[in-house]
Design a protein around this nucleic acid. Structure first.
Lengths: 341, 341
DNA sequence: ATCCCTTTTGACACCGGTTTCCTTTTTCGT
DNA sequence: ACGAAAAAGGAAACCGGTGTCAAAAGGGAT
């Protein structure tokens, strides 16, 4: 017959049910203006035919689509993937889908590329992961193009409806508190790269905490890193080779902390006996190196879910949250320092 | 005016250019049947108005869309992300977009979920990552639904047009060759989980290579793992605590190799002096632990690109490739064993 | 200049939904 | 039982593209 081996359309449903397509449309969209009998009859036909509305046709008629975009340029694969999982938690039972788009932060054409992408795909909204989430021009572009957006970040970069943020600064403070409680006084810092908001927040948090405890931070107790493993090796090397070396190092992410561990090992400095290390991110590597790293973890999956809900169901209670406290994850890379100081 | 602040449509272009929309459509689709003058005039108008075709409308009219799906349930985030990058390499300049869909391999409803996803989104094709790429029912589902698909795997699971595969078996052989060349005779194996094709291939490759070299594999030289870090710790523990312990261990992935390193450290067995370890995957952790792991890496990004091209540009030369040789990455976790054996 | 063939262009229906607006049916008060 | 208001359902247009097919324009050959 006409509708035998093709996927059924709304017309097929209408014909079989003996109603107009508009009535079927009402059923699909849960319109209240429909008699219970009619609704049930049509629902039966829908189930029978295995009808699923065509999202492209819906998108065209509604002048909006059901695609969320994920923009990222992330050094940390696990973060991206966890976030994706969170987004899917939010949209799995809806008709939305998630489109991913890795971007090149270093390309001068980045904004043009993204503009073209948004124009072409006409996304319902985009989710932006750090570090490019910190780019205000990008947010402005989204607004200009009428594209919804939510930025993930380590600070409140924007209005609550456009942000899911951790509280990096406070969390670094509590990490430093923990080191101080453990008896450390000479604490070094490996900073993240210039221009990264998270790096800034973490460094500020560190300085603030040290000040709070009345501890001095010598310039030679601060080293610059790039968030990459190798930079951690180098930066920790500087710290460890300086005279009056620190008994603990706070690293602005786990990769660099792993690098610091590496540098310590090269120098036969035992962690945690002779040196305590704290990382940030609670990435998988933190648990898989020896000693397992004490670090600060954020609820990325939850943040992904909330971010998606902010776009697709802003009224939902879970969509109201903009702040997501991180947590200190205590493992084995911190110990009380030798008594000599 | 009519078209002032809304995004322009094909009608706007047609009106401004003074031609019919069909003619504009021809220009967009690079039809040859069009006079050069007309084409240039229309292209100018398109550029002037900043017109971009609406992909939803195109999808509706063409009865196909421009969405590729990525199905995965992957323990290894970096693999997924690298593959995504590869896919984007292939589609970045096209109108295609990539939709991701993490799935739950352990759910009994997995196939139904995927069916619903495919029905709902009507994807042009899907890319399937291991381990679920090994599920033949899933491939059958794709065929049944007329959805293109390409499976990534560690063996030729399907026809060339539906697969991008590494040659795990051969690569494990060459890893074993390398250990034997380095003087090892007692080599242990940590297997991946039952039911994973890659685990099977790697184990087979191992046994084949040992046979080739005339080396015996005692049952107690084989331990079962799950591809997870913890299982590596346990499995390596068994191997190392057995009498007549191996001087080298081949681990079926890097996570377990990191676990094995862990187990060695707990027992004060020095790697690589007293024990050599080889992993598989060349995941980031391999380079970030100490000692850096000798491992087998596969060109995942290239595979992602080829997989995408198989769907969107099957005639492209790069889309013809189905086999992607992996490579032994020599780092520091393998050494000549102490002479005693 | 005419005719025929090829190239270029346009009119109109259609893809599968939604919206607007109008008609029919039902419900209910009196 | 009657009329009015409310509820339910339908016809036709529309969203922004593409396919079909016929018409118009161009180009030689006669």
């Amino acid at each position: 017959m006409a509708s035998s081996n093709k996927t059924p359309t709304i017309n097929d449903v209408a014909r079989v049910a003996g109603v107009s397509k508009k009535t079927v449309s009402r059923v699909i969209n849960r319109s209240a203006l429909i008699k219970k009998d009619t609704r049930e009859k049509i629902e039966a036909v829908i189930a029978d035919l295995g009808y699923v509305p065509n999202p492209q046709a819906r998108a065209l008629a509604l002048r909006r689509n059901f695609l969320l975009g994920l923009l990222h340029d992330n050094p940390n694969a696990q973060t991206v993937l966890n976030f994706q999982e969170g987004v899917l938690d939010a949209i799995r039972t809806t008709e939305f889908a998630l489109v991913v788009r890795p971007v090149d932060r270093h390309s001068p054409k980045m904004l043009d590329d993204i503009r073209h992408f948004l124009e072409q795909q006409r996304l319902y909204g985009v989710l932006i992961l750090p570090p490019i989430s910190e780019n205000d021009e990008l947010a402005a572009l989204c607004r200009e193009m009428g594209c919804g957006y939510v930025r993930m970040g380590s600070a409140m970069l924007d209005d609550e409806e456009h942000v899911v943020a951790s509280n990096d600064r406070e969390m670094v403070e509590s990490a430093v508190d923990y080191l101080v409680e453990s008896g450390h006084r000479k604490i070094g810092l490996i900073k993240g790269p210039e221009g990264f908001r998270s790096a800034y927040e973490r460094a500020e948090g560190f300085m603030g905490a040290m000040l709070k405890h009345g501890l001095e931070v010598a310039p030679r107790a601060i080293a610059q890193g790039t968030y990459r493993f190798d930079s951690g090796v180098v930066a920790a090397g500087e710290l460890l080779d300086s005279k009056d070396r620190p008994t603990a190092i706070f690293c602005s992410n786990d990769e660099m902390a792993a690098g610091a561990l590496h540098a310590a090992r090269q120098r036969d400095i035992h962690v945690p006996r002779d040196l305590s290390i704290i990382g940030f991110d609670d990435s998988p590597i933190a648990a898989h190196i020896w000693p397992p790293l004490t670090t600060v973890g954020w609820p990325i999956r939850e943040m992904g879910k909330a971010a998606a809900l902010k776009l697709v169901a802003p009224a939902d209670e879970a969509a109201q949250r903009a702040r997501f406290p991180a947590q200190l994850v205590k493992r084995l890379s911190v110990a009380r320092p030798a008594v000599e100081n």
